[in-house]
Design a protein around this nucleic acid. Structure first.
Lengths: 341, 341
DNA sequence: GATTTTTTGATTTACGTACATCAGAATTGG
DNA sequence: CCAATTCTGATGTACGTAAATCAAAAAATC
């Protein structure tokens, strides 16, 4: 049988109350006594029963998700996954709230974080906007004891406890290798459609993509990046225009959202050409396009996994428990038409 | 605040004892009274606090993992992951045991299942050997109320509650498309190295592979399957021999274990040739081969995820709780050298 | 040595559920 | 209507921990 607090008390020759004081870091225990108790804990291999403790404490985990107010499929999906998590919150003792802040607006994000720090959530998950002031605020909150995880987009250099998202540089590199290998031995030009170069994840994908393209596929030239602002209409216009004026395009890498517009442009302008296309994020549109061969591969991050992972990590951090790193690693999904879920 | 059994009792106008009898399906409650209680439960949205219930019951989850006694990297890895899970068992109230049975031996597996059914584990996870008698035994146990999940290799047509493994047909199809696209427009022959055609997962991978090859890449011919029995030595011999006598081989698909031998053969015999190689299972050997370009892509199933998923599902089934399907779906990982973990 | 302060012990209640017991009520059969 | 049976209520204990209270002991201060 697992040892309990009673066993510790008996083994250390102290009372239950003293064990409790040691376990919960309450004052009023002499140093030597504390050591006696800690020795007993180690010797018996005592592990606190978190379920019983939470029951006794009546603990709940008030968590906050901060999301950008962007209107694209991915963010909608993310929101949906959070709503699913809220439905499970009764069973998981969580109390989840989402807050929207203007996208790409560091000041608004900082203000929201400051405001949140006054009420005391036991954890914050945020889609980070990459700016020094955000970083500074996050560091401040972490020092003050708030568990914070970044979601989808990281805040490198900050002290956030965890990042629940994919490695975007690796994603870009993978896209490049897939596209390069699929196209070989053809020569030609590659169109890249991004949302905005102001967003860290897009910048990182592009960085990884261009690096591998340059190293390994010199026969393929990357055209200037088209910034579609994650908007289907703009994406459509930009891609249609690029295809119309440049007959040398053999491949397309879409590293942001707004793929609906991309797909429309491909179907209008590229019927007779054999373009190889790689896009990010599995949505109903990209899925259909993958199946009808308009798109050749989709790179995806599973929003559901990201949300569940963020919650698990925040709860663990709040309780001071370890996390299983391998479990919390968000993998880059590569979908061909054959392995769609 | 969440409603408790007390609230239910008050709302239904009955005593705590009666609510308890309803909740735990104990006898001694008239039909009308039972309905009153169930209505109250629904109206208040009562959800049983599983943590408190488990505490009161002193519940633990005795789980059994049945594994084939095969000596390959993948099974070693799987075993390691189970050991990791055993280390966590104190915190998760599990009591996990592994049992080895001779590989590919339906009779032994059936005997073990029969034996297990006498002691009463609250769940069984098994790497299934695909045979009618195994299927029948599993169905019998499921009917008797044992939660059973298959691990890595499924038992289609059986009543097992869940399969914690990848879709192997999809895996084979994906391998074919990757290989086909990487090789295009070359023509030539494809060598396929399998473990044994007696194992369902290998058969399924081959089935998916040949299907897509035939449909989409008619310029690539599949050579007769080499059965390496998941043994590095045999694999080495078979592949070395095939490469030596057939200069038309342009690609290799290794769908089983024993990749150490394959890699050695490739390095010896194919230095001057540009072979495209796709293999299954990420191990130290395949990882190194991917990095040094001996292998072009690795398809993988994450044993850690499979084990953790099996445990979650078994616990949920034992408690009659729902599982999050999307969370428990084991994905096919595709690794290029750029997205290695 | 008396007083104050700090440390410790003993005890109790609580969290939400499970489970057992026993008495009393309602229902059924004769 | 009485007896036998089937329900239901009331109550208590338990699970492992948290947290509070108050008394007692030990240590530190003067």
């Amino acid at each position: 049988m697992r040892p309990t607090v009673h066993d510790i008390a008996a083994a250390a020759g102290v009372s239950l109350a003293t064990v409790d004081r040691v376990l919960n870091r309450r004052p009023g225990v002499r140093h030597v006594t504390r050591e006696k108790v800690e020795t007993a804990i180690r010797q018996l291999g005592y592990i606190r029963d978190v379920a019983a403790a939470n029951l006794a404490k009546g603990r709940t985990y008030p968590l906050v998700f901060i999301l950008p107010a962007s209107d694209n499929s991915f963010m909608h999906g993310l929101n949906g996954e959070i709503r699913q998590a809220i439905l499970r919150s009764a069973a998981e003792r969580t109390d989840i709230r989402t807050i929207e802040v203007p996208a790409f607006d560091p000041a608004a994000l900082v203000a929201m974080l400051e405001e949140l720090s006054r009420e005391k959530p036991c954890g914050v998950a945020m889609v980070a906007t990459d700016a020094p002031e955000v970083c500074a605020t996050v560091d401040k909150l972490v020092h003050a004891g708030f568990p914070i995880v970044t979601l989808v987009s990281d805040l490198t250099g900050s002290l956030r406890h965890h990042y629940a998202g994919v490695d975007n540089i690796a994603a870009g590199r993978t896209a490049a290798r897939l596209l390069g290998r699929f196209l070989r031995p053809r020569k030609g030009e590659i169109a890249v459609l991004a949302g905005s170069m102001l967003v860290r994840d897009h910048r990182e994908r592009l960085e990884g993509f261009t690096a591998v393209m340059a190293e390994e596929f010199p026969d393929l030239a990357i055209l200037p990046v088209l910034e579609g602002r994650d908007d289907p209409e703009i994406a459509h216009m930009l891609v249609a225009d690029a295809l119309a004026r440049n007959a040398g395009i053999v491949g397309v890498y879409s590293l942001g959202a707004g793929n609906r517009g991309l797909i429309r442009a491909l179907k209008e302008k590229a019927v007779d050409r054999t373009l190889t296309v790689i896009a990010h994020e599995l949505t109903t549109h990209t899925r259909a396009a993958l199946i009808d061969n308009t798109i050749d591969a989709i790179l995806n991050q599973d929003a559901g996994h990201e949300v569940r992972s963020a919650i698990r990590v925040l709860k663990a951090k709040a309780d001071g428990l370890p996390v299983i790193d391998a479990q919390e690693r968000i993998r880059l999904d590569i979908f061909l038409k054959d392995n769609l879920p």
